[in-house]
Design a binder for these strands. Sequence first.
DNA 1: TATTTTGTTAAACAAACGTTTAATTAGTAT
DNA 2: ATACTAATTAAACGTTTGTTTAACAAAATA
Lengths: 215, 215
Amino acid sequence: MNYKVKKKQATAESKDRIIKAAVALFARQGYAGTGLRELAAAADVNLAMINYFFGSKQKLLKAILDVFFKGYLAIARSELTTDDDLQSKIGRFIASAGTFFEAHRDYLIVAITELPHDHPEIVEYKASWGKQMIEIIDREICRPLSAETGSPVSPVVIGPMLTSMMASPFLFAPLTERLRPGDSERVGGEDWQEMISMIFLWGIGGVQKKRAVLS
Amino acid sequence: MNYKVKKKQATAESKDRIIKAAVALFARQGYAGTGLRELAAAADVNLAMINYFFGSKQKLLKAILDVFFKGYLAIARSELTTDDDLQSKIGRFIASAGTFFEAHRDYLIVAITELPHDHPEIVEYKASWGKQMIEIIDREICRPLSAETGSPVSPVVIGPMLTSMMASPFLFAPLTERLRPGDSERVGGEDWQEMISMIFLWGIGGVQKKRAVLS
DNA sequence: TATTTTGTTAAACAAACGTTTAATTAGTAT
DNA sequence: ATACTAATTAAACGTTTGTTTAACAAAATA
């Protein structure tokens, strides 16, 4: 029953090399700053193969954003849409998202750097992702939180803020790696995840404050 | 004594229109995604004027980054390098930076979106800014903080994080404006500044936690 | 085996790119 | 008025851009 294997495999291999090379190049040079010939050379395929598989340069970008948006949204859904307390929900979400960001750091960089730009076709796609994301955060974080504290918090503020907090070491990595090589290596790991959770929940130096409240 | 006024005024006017139009276009379409002819048309100048004033497209980008980096660094210096307590230092810094970000939101978007990209000439310039920024944050925030809490915090983590937190509503504005128009209008204002300070210092829903510690 | 589908290639397309040049205008200084 | 400097212009430079086309190889289907 492997009558399709060889062909499909060949397809998958070339298509995969293209998208892998594209993410790497887009992350370091930007989407508009990367030429299709340069990409074709990096992926070791013929120039025409890119539009053969993806249709256009813009659809290739969309395919990349799709990986990040779908993955990040799925994590938010599975980790936040639960019944347990707010604190552990957020802790788990940050842990999962941190692992995801680390494994997809170039996807993350492309997504964030292209976020403010208005490619005609993609802008609606980004908006639909943002809408779903904000709905989840509103329902699972903001409402429970304001019920607890009394003061309402907007998911339109909290959502981007939390995402940016977690994304920051990856966005600044090209800078920080020059300054303190190695410091950014352990970003995304367990220690880092716990630190983000701590700061988001309890602020900087939150340890003793956390103790103060819990006691 | 105004023998040079008219000439210089004309110069300043054209040069000013170019950099203003450039910031607006770069923020919405990206640096590489904006052509010099498009920019010339938007600034209402001849194409050749751009390289006449700035030398090259890349140097124009550098001039834009310069405005943001110098301004942000100056705020960090003046608001953080003081003798009072950590909490009010951070509060003042966030307030000033928020006002600055709001007044220069397009500069901010250009700086952040071009941050991970490696334009050969500009990469060193960004690194030197990052180095100075991190030195200040280390000396004025991280060291006093770890002396207080006992656990050390890296400025390479805290710096990018705080910057990203404050930048997030501006980076996501093109998205959030579609979802909740008006919500992003008041970003950067006093309420927003106080909220960022609160979250950074005490975490989300920090009010009652702050009370718990202070009492 | 013949046919159709799928992957791959080289070549060409017009359009847009950043940059440079030489000529021209206009305001200032001698 | 003359000479000088700075601002502005139109035109062209050679590359590079994203996209398309037609031809070709190979594998799957019939």
